[in-house]
Structure formats: structure tokens, C-alpha cells
Nucleic acid binder design. Structure first.
Lengths: 225, 225
DNA sequence: ATTAATCGTTAAGAAATCATGAAGAAATGG
DNA sequence: CCATTTCTTCATGATTTCTTAACGATTAAT
């Protein structure tokens, strides 16, 4: 808890009430908080303060959250911040668009301060763990449709490759089944409940059991060792 | 990892910000890094430092990446470096032109430092393995439209030759059907789905089954044994 | 400990994709 | 123009990959 105090958090929402509510609650915990009321403004601020975490409302005038997120993710100069979307429970389409744009998490409105804060702690904890580890035991080569694992290269069938590619695109992030289906299978196709599991199993057969972890009731996550 | 530190890497991009970003990240790993902001400059530096790897932006003023690459590849005095293009995801036409010009790999912008570095490691690993092989089991002579296979020379019809030339230009890379069609047939002509297969088959009849591998659902790849 | 929910595993059938052979078009070269 | 080669198409068979479905194992909740 105490080492999180150094982090800077940017909150972006077009409703002043929410901004105030959130910033009050988060400041109270000792974080540095900045606010913006639309995407454009957010981008300006991000450039200057380089926050650790951004809470980003999806629905906003001028520039919505998805777009803002995409722009940030493309900006090479940024120390890529963790981005969590704020969504109304009804906007689940946003989840799919959102993590394609590079989101790390979702926080559903209405927001409970206690839950929010523990989520923030949990997200910030990732920063230490996910950065270094350059021994890159696994490398995914989109060109060759091949995965290099400890120097050996491994050809994967299409679906397996795409699934691994998705999971490995954000190590540590947990993808739920809907998200996986949306990206690997496409939003229209309907496949049975166990299909994903079978592909996961084949991947584990080939990679070993150490890379893909199951989070029961939630989804799967990729991690290097 | 430690023997990679001796390598010299040249980065070529016209945007100073990207140059700085890349050189910072790559230097941090212990490589010797040089930079150039256009093709002309790159050529001068290449002559002097003889780098192991060049990261080459495609879009540049004065002399673009493709042209630069071609010139380097034609220069027999150079210890041919590995060349990877930096491309925006939208410039896929560049991939086609690029590997015809002799590129070894592509790195898509926006660039993620972690992925970049592991890709660099992987590319440099090739140096040891790919250089010797004087038993050159296959040799493609673009001028004569002839392939020498284990000492015997083999005349190929145009389409077969171009197809083989494409595949062999980047051993290990998987070319999908669209890419093959674009290069061998040209982007306008429309041919049936099975046409490529037939030519592949004829090549396999003549070369043996060991050179061209099918990646189902993806494409074909050339590999020596 | 029992139950309910979720995930793992396996094998078999379905679907997608590719290989192959043959035959006719198109191109090429005399 | 004809003969030959090369290219393409099409039909059929083979193979790989994908999906399903049944059942067992694990986990979480009561």
C-alpha cells in the first residue's frame, strides 16, 4: 500500500460529478490525481505527467475513450500507462472494442469506492512485475506463424497461433471467454463452450504448462514462467 | 545473451524521436548503436561500421528504405548485414516491395520495446546459423531463370521460377496466398484458388518434397531441409 | 462433506484446406 | 499456322485442423 503512493493517476470523464467523486476518493489514499473531461484534454495531460494509470470513461464527447486509448498506445514516447475503462454495465460492446484498443481492465459504473481502490492497487502492482524480464523465453513471430520457445521454433495451426498471440499480447492480463471468442473467432461465429479449452490444452501440450494459466470463473492469462 | 553484446546495430529513421527512443532502448541492452536519419547517411555509415543488423524505416525522405536496402544488398564488399524494416501496420505494400529488396524481417510500428528486443536477439541468432552452409543445396539464378540443385541445374518455367524465387527470398517466412498472388501474378489478375497449389506441386516434383512446406490455413514456406 | 459450477481431457466426427491428376486454354516459338 | 510448352481450371481424394460431446477432475460455496 505504501509504495503505491508515488503513483500518478489520471481520471478522464465528462461528468464533473464523477470526476470530483473519484478524485476525492483516490486522493484520499495518497495518490497524485489529475483530471480531464475529454480525450483531447487527456492526451495533453498524459504527455506532461506520464501517469502510471489512467481511468478512462468510454462515452465522452469530442473524443471517446476507445480512440484516446488507441492514440496513447501508439505513442512511443510514453511510458505506457495502465489503462482501465470506466463503463456502464450496459455497454459491454465497449469491452470488446476496448481491449482491442489496448485496455488493461474495466471498472463498471456505478463505482464503489472501496472496490475501485483495491482494483487500483492491484493494477499498479503489475508495473513492477511486467516490465523487465528480457530473457524472452518466448517469441511470437507473426510473419512465420511460428513461435520460438527457448531457441526452438514451433509451427502452430492457425487457431492455436491466434489464441496464443492474443494472450501473449498482454502478458498478465486475463482474457475472459467472450473476449477470446470475439478476437479469435470473430463476433458472429458461435462455437461450443469447450472449444476454447481444447485449444488451450493443445497449446499447453506444445509450450508446456507454465505459460498459460487458468483463472477459474474468469478466463486465461499468459505469463512467462 | 552475453555474446550478442558485441553486435553493432544501425538504426535508420527520419523521425528524431523514434531514433532516440529506439537507440535508448537498444543501447540499454548493451549493443553498440549508430543512427542515421536517411538512406544516404545510412549507406555512409554502413561502409564504415559494417553492422550486424540494420533497422530501416521504409518511409524516409531523400532515399527510402527499400532503395537503401537494395543498394546494400548489391554491395559485394559488405559483410551482408541483417536488415529489418520498420513499417506502419498500414503499409503492407511495403512488405512485398521490401522482401523483394532483400529484407530479412519486418517490425511493425508502433514498436513495443520488449518485442523489439527479443526480435533483435532472434535475428542476431541467425548470423551464426545462416552464414556458412556452403553446401548450398539450392541456388537460384535470377539471370538465367535457372535453379541449381545439388550441382544439377534445372530450368523452370516462368511462374514456377517466380514462385520459388519469392518463397526462397526469405526462408522460413510463411507467405500467404494473397501475398503470393500479389507478387507472382500481380495485384489485378484473378486466378482460381487452386492455381497456386498446382505450381507448388510442380516445384515439389522437381525439387523434392523437402523444400516447400505447407502451413495449412496460412500459406507456404521455403526451408532448406 | 456435499453440491454446483467450472475447467480438463479424450476421442470421434465435421469442416476446412490442400494434393493430385487430367484436360482444356493460353502462350510461345518455330 | 502448327507444335510444344506452360498455365489454369476442375473434380476427386487425402490430410489436417476444428469442433463437439461426454465424462472426469478440480475448485468454490454452502
Amino acid at each position: 500500500m505504501e509504495n503505491s503512493k508515488g503513483h500518478t493517476i489520471l481520471i478522464v470523464d465528462d461528468e464533473p460529478d464523477i470526476l470530483e467523486f473519484l478524485s476525492y476518493n483516490i486522493r484520499k489514499e495518497g495518490f497524485k490525481v489529475y483530471v480531464a473531461s475529454n480525450g483531447q484534454e487527456a492526451l495533453r495531460i498524459v504527455q506532461q505527467i506520464n501517469p502510471s494509470l489512467i481511468l478512462l470513461d468510454v462515452m465522452m464527447p469530442v473524443m471517446d475513450g476507445i480512440e484516446t486509448c488507441q492514440i496513447i498506445r501508439k505513442d512511443l514516447h510514453l511510458n505506457q500507462p495502465i489503462i482501465a475503462f470506466l463503463t456502464a454495465r450496459t455497454e459491454d460492446y465497449a469491452q470488446i472494442a476496448g481491449f482491442e484498443a489496448g485496455a488493461d481492465d474495466y471498472i463498471n459504473k456505478p463505482i464503489r469506492p472501496r472496490l475501485l481502490l483495491s482494483k487500483i492497487e492491484s493494477l499498479l502492482r503489475r508495473i513492477k512485475t511486467s516490465t523487465p524480464k528480457l530473457d524472452a523465453s518466448i517469441l511470437i513471430d507473426r510473419d512465420r506463424f511460428v513461435v520460438e520457445l527457448n531457441g526452438e521454433s514451433l509451427a502452430l495451426p492457425k487457431k492455436e497461433f491466434e489464441l496464443l498471440e492474443l494472450l501473449a499480447s498482454r502478458p498478465g492480463k486475463v482474457f475472459n471467454r467472450d473476449q477470446i471468442l470475439a478476437v479469435v473467432w470473430g463476433n458472429e461465429t458461435v462455437v461450443g463452450e469447450r472449444t476454447i479449452d481444447v485449444h488451450i490444452r493443445k497449446l499447453r501440450e506444445k509450450l508446456g504448462d507454465d505459460y498459460i494459466r487458468t483463472i477459474k470463473g474468469v478466463g486465461y492469462t499468459f505469463q512467462e514462467k
